[in-house]
Design a protein around this nucleic acid. Sequence first.
RNA 1: UCCUCGAUAGCUCAACGGUAGAGCGGCCGGCUGUUAACCGGCAGGUUGCAGGUUCGAAUCCUGCUCGAGGAGCCA
Length: 433
Amino acid sequence: MPAVKTVRLDQLAHHQGQEVVVCGWLYNKRSSGKILFLILRDGTGFVQAVVSRDSVDEETFRAADRLTQESSLRVRGTVRADPRAPGGYELQVTALEIFQRAEEYPLSLKEHGIEFLLDHRHLWLRTPRQVAIMRVRHRVVKACRDFLDERGFVLVDAPILTGAACEGTTTLFRTDYFGRSAYLTQSGQLYMEAAAMALGKVYCFGPAFRAEKSKTRRHLMEFWMVEPEMAFADLEDCISLAEEMLTVVTEEVLRHCRSELELLGRKLEPLTHVKPPFPRLSYDQAVQLLQAKGRQFEWGDDFGAPEETLISLEFDRPVVVHRYPAACKAFYMEPDPQRPEVVLAMDVLAPEGYGEIIGGGQRLAGSELLVSKFREHHLPEEAYRWYLDLRRFGSVPHSGFGLGIERLLAWICGLRHVREAIPFPRMLNRLYP
RNA sequence: UCCUCGAUAGCUCAACGGUAGAGCGGCCGGCUGUUAACCGGCAGGUUGCAGGUUCGAAUCCUGCUCGAGGAGCCA
C-alpha cells in the first residue's frame, strides 16, 4: 500500500477530505449488493469504510465481501463527512489489504451470558464497553499516581512474596519457596511503614492476593491497591488525604473520560458531588444511624455489606467512618488515647451502595503495645521482628490507607460487578483465561 | 462452609408429561446508502452427568458436576 499517512480512528475528524490509511479490525459488516459498509475499530474509535464496486477492482471487492467479524485489515481511502455514517465521518475506500481473514468469531453483537463472556475474556476485552472501562481504569491509575507524586510521595515497591501475613485473620495463597512456605502479599502496608520511616511520604501500587472463598460482586482473589503511608501524620491527616485524593481522581475522570462514561451509561451527576468535606461519622454515630433505621445491630459488631450500603445511601458523596472498636480492626491500629476501646481507624464508603473502597488509619507507634497485640492475635513474633524494629528506632505517629482500584473503578463506572474492572479477573472459580 | 437460583443448537432463549423450535452467528443466493441492515434457502441437538417414576421425560423425583447471586471475610 503506497505511503499515505496512517491515522488512528479517534483522529479521523482532523483529516477531512484527505486520503489516509487506517488499520483495524472488522467490527461489523453490512452490504447491499454493489456497496459494502465495513465498520472498523482500532481501539481508539470506529469508522464506517465504504467499499463500492466502482471504486475498487473486482478482486478487492470480492475479498471485502467475504470478510468475517474481527478480520484484521488496513484500508486506504478518503475521509469525508456524511450524516448517514455512524460518528459523522466515513472512509471512501480505494484500497484494502487483509492481514488475516478471521475464523468464525465466538462473540456475536448480541447479548451473551456472563460465564461465556468470562471464558472469552481475551476477546470480550475488544468490545466497546470493555474498552471504555479499561480507558477509565488507566485514567484512575494515572490520577492516583499523579496525585501522590505531586504531593511529594515516593513510589516504593512492596514485595509480592512474603514470609508471613500482614493481618493474621485472612487467608493467604501459599507457594513453595525452595522448600519453605512463602505467601503472596495481601497488602504492602507493613513495608510502606518501613519505607515511610526512610523517605517520609511513600506509596506502593501493586497487586494484592486474598485466598478468601468470597463469591460476591465486590470480591476478586487478585486485585490492585494503592497504599500511601505518611510519617508524622495522624488520623485527621489520613482522612484529609483520602478525601482530597478521591476528589481529584473523580475530577480527572470527569475531565478526560466523558465519552467513556457516556458509553457505559454512567450518570455523571453523582460523580460531580465528590467534593470535600466528606461526611464523617464515628463508629458510634454509625451504629446510632443503623439502629434508627431499624437495623438489628449491637455496638462492637463489624459492618457487613448490608450495613455499609445502608450508611452510604444516606449521603450524596463518599462517607468516612472512623474510630472502630479495636476488635473489628487489624492489630496494627493505634488506640484512641481518649477511649482505648476504639482505634484510630477509618474506612471510606462509596456512595450508591458500593461499599468500602478505602481502609486505613493511624498505625500503632508503641513497641510494648505492639508486642501484646502480637500475642493477642497469635502472630509469630519472629516474623514481625523487623516490624517491631520500626517502633524501637525513632518511632513516630504515622498513618496511611489502602485504596482498592477495582472497587473505586466499579463505582466510578457504575459497574454491577468488580470483575469487569480488571482485565483478567481471578475469582473463586476462575483462573482462565 | 452455608443459603438461593440455574444448565436445551456455536451464542441468547422458547418448548413445562405427548414429533425439540426461533433469533443471531455459519454456508449458499438476492439487493448501489446500510445503521445490532433486510429478503430467500441450507446445515446445525446423546436437552450438564448418573439413576429413578411413567405407556411416554428437556419437562417430575434423587444424587453428582459445573456455574451465577448472596452470607461470612475484606479493598
